[in-house]
Design a protein around this nucleic acid. Sequence first.
DNA 1: AACCAATGCGTTATGAAATAACATAACCCG
DNA 2: CGGGTTATGTTATTTCATAACGCATTGGTT
Lengths: 161, 161
Amino acid sequence: MGVDCHHTESAQPGLEGAALASAVAAAETKCERTRERLTPPRRRVLELLLEADGPMKAYDLIAAYGQDGEPAKPPTVYRALEFLERLGFAHRIESLNAYVPCRMEGTSHRAAFLICECCGTAEEFEPDFAPQFAAAEAAGYAVRTVTLEARGLCPACKGGA
Amino acid sequence: MGVDCHHTESAQPGLEGAALASAVAAAETKCERTRERLTPPRRRVLELLLEADGPMKAYDLIAAYGQDGEPAKPPTVYRALEFLERLGFAHRIESLNAYVPCRMEGTSHRAAFLICECCGTAEEFEPDFAPQFAAAEAAGYAVRTVTLEARGLCPACKGGA
DNA sequence: AACCAATGCGTTATGAAATAACATAACCCG
DNA sequence: CGGGTTATGTTATTTCATAACGCATTGGTT
């Protein structure tokens, strides 16, 4: 992954069993409140994101989509991703062309990630863009969304090799 | 462009004539200092970025590459872009799949942009990530690069329609 | 000068990521 | 039930990016 240290895979454990079901249920509930529909493809893609150990590429999702091994058609997944992003259930990581489930509650139009170039994990954190944000608005900009992506090495990969 | 107001094109004027030559010369000088080589393809791509009125897509650069109208081969341009980014002469805007010349002096590993979803301009600004940066390092991360992309409407597009 | 390692380039081909366009189906609401 | 709206299925295509390989140029070394 750019810098090379050779960890097999990521440190970000995916959800399973009850935790997974509960996360999906929470999304369901939120949807109901806003009269949005968590349809089967949307639910399925959300599940895949939640189960994953790290950021998922769109074509990983496409390949993993069918429980029977049948891939999805690209638009199915891209449309679901668009929905999940719109509702704040998922984020796209631009510098990775990949997607993660949102791990911050009450998120809105901002997302920030610490991306490990060794193990590939992407940890979401609460940014506090207040200063930049204010500066932009002062300059006359109407900011709608902000994304921040910091790349480097996570504690585990920094320490080890 | 997502939000629709119908300005023909961007408000970010490209360089030409003496200003262009001088910007290229400055890059040349910087390269010499670090024993890097601003070879013809690299110089050409830098010129194209500097001349442009806004972010350039890779395939725009490919198409515009030859003075005679001959396009470049993709690797030519992608390799040049890699070089220009490495030296801080250009930035990739992830959320646009596009490239801009660096407009901040003495830049390093960080870049921040205000991207207008109407007219397509991308204004670089000085971020001051100190707080986020410090927080990340405190959490044990070794941050190498940071990019921030704020999307919204520029003053011109916000005001008009 | 002759050599050699390192870097960059040209070229062909292919891989990966995302969307256009259009037909069909399900949902909501009056 | 009728009719608008939203979502899906499907085919094809477009857009973005890199692999792989051989040749050329550079710059240092003997």
